[in-house]
Computed example of a mutant assay.
Amino acid sequence: MAAAAFLPVAPVGATRAGGSVGQRLCRQPRRVGAAPAAARRGRPLVTAGAAKAADDAEAAAEAAKTDTLLEFFADAAECGRVRFVVVSAGAVLESVAELATPPQTFPIPTKGTYITFKTGGGTHEAHVSVRSVASVKLSTEPAKVGGHDLHVMRLLGVGGGPVLSLLVAWAEGEGPGSYTPEAVAAFGRLRAKYGDGFTL
């Protein structure tokens, strides 16, 4: 009599690829048309169309800020030579140059538009991130040392901290506070147009 053939049977709860037998049997098929898990849990879904609309709105806002700053710098160029001042936690960088040359603009991926001032055959360069500037403030105030007037244009960030300061430079060959009448008059026209400054 031929021996009976027996097939191996996996014990209850034994694990195979994809989980135990019991787990696989208990799984429920996903309903056709059911919402994704993220939506069922109340998390918002970002569609490709919504993401593009947000990107377009951000680009339009940045373009408007760039145009406003370029107009301001064109007006400020009438002041002639200005002192660029950047202050960090441990250093102060100053450079004197003119704003007469129209600044260049260029985009940097993930960082947005930058405005570049380049004069003196490349001996002076300054790059300003449009995204970093939230407002511009104008003031005439006494110097901390010497007491002479300073005519200041400050580019401020979102938190109110300085991004870049531009000070009308005194006449070449003269000492602090000795401005040309043309420079003082040009700064006065800036104050007449922009007041104490503007928000971007």
Rank of each mutant, 00 (worst) to 15 (best):
A63R: 12
G161R: 10
A91D: 14
T47A: 08
L99K: 03
W170H: 14
E182H: 12
G80D: 05
G195Q: 07
H127I: 00
E58G: 02
L166H: 06
K137D: 11
Q23T: 14
D149L: 09
T113W: 00
A76M: 08
A61L: 13
R189K: 14
P103F: 04
V96E: 15
P142A: 00
R154H: 06
E141S: 10
A59R: 06
A91N: 10
A74R: 15
K137R: 15
L99G: 01
L138W: 06
E94I: 10
C79M: 15
S178W: 13
K137V: 09
A4Y: 03
G197Y: 11
F117V: 02
D67M: 13
V152D: 03
R31I: 12
G157C: 00
G197W: 11
G197C: 10
E125F: 09
A35N: 02
E78P: 04
V96R: 15
A77Q: 13
V152Q: 07
F198S: 10
G42L: 03
Q23H: 13
Q28I: 13
R81A: 11
S165E: 11
V152C: 07
G120S: 08
G161F: 08
V136I: 09
A37P: 04
V12M: 05
P44N: 06
P44W: 03
V184L: 13
Y114N: 07
V145T: 03
P181Q: 15
K52M: 12
A171W: 05
L155P: 04
K111T: 03
G80P: 01
L70N: 09
R83S: 14
A126H: 09
A186D: 06
K52I: 06
L200K: 08
D67R: 15
G19P: 06
P8A: 10
F117C: 03
F84V: 05
M1I: 08
P8T: 08
P176Q: 10
P162E: 15
K193A: 14
L93K: 15
K65V: 03
L167Q: 09
R30C: 11
G195T: 04
V145P: 01
I108S: 01
G42E: 05
G49D: 13
T101A: 15
V158F: 12
V86F: 06
R83P: 05
A39T: 07
G160L: 09
T105V: 06
V130W: 00
A4W: 07
T119H: 03
S129D: 02
A51M: 10
A17N: 09
S95D: 14
G121N: 04
T119V: 11
